[in-house]
């Protein structure tokens, strides 16, 4: 315990909150990815993509909240912020790649 490692202890009564917020981070993350995917698939109208971004914002917020609750170190906080930015672009990168692959596929031979 004498070292300079950044590892604050957490009181037991904060635990449930941490669990719930940690879950929300993931749920909102799936929500974001799912809304973008479903609208790309045409299951839901394009305008629902906006809700996807709302999920992403909620995810950023809950992740920030989680970071506060567990007293994460300044460095970790920065990395998490970068990760969230990457996550914002990730689905768009996928679908760009898929569209490109599809184009190539369509122009090559039909079937397997």
């Amino acid at each position: 315990m004498e070292s300079a490692i950044y590892m604050p202890q957490i009181a037991a009564d904060q635990f449930l909150g941490i669990f719930i917020v940690a879950t929300m981070v993931l749920i909102f993350g799936v929500g974001y990815a799912a809304s973008i995917t479903l609208s790309k698939m045409g299951f839901i109208a394009k305008k629902w993509q906006l809700f996807g971004y709302a999920f992403w914002i909620l995810q950023v917020y809950t992740l920030y909240d989680l970071g506060m609750r567990i007293h994460s170190s300044p460095f970790t906080t920065k990395v998490l912020a970068v990760a969230m930015l990457a996550y914002l672009f990730a689905p768009h990168l996928y679908f760009y790649l898929i569209d490109e692959a599809e184009k190539r596929y369509e122009t090559s031979e039909d079937g397997q």
Partner: peptide, 16 residues
């Protein structure tokens, strides 16, 4: 793996 894993993967939580 994702949700239940993420729950306890940070040392601040895992210590408990």
């Amino acid at each position: 793996a994702g949700i239940w894993g993420f729950f306890h993967t940070l040392p601040q939580v895992n210590i408990y």
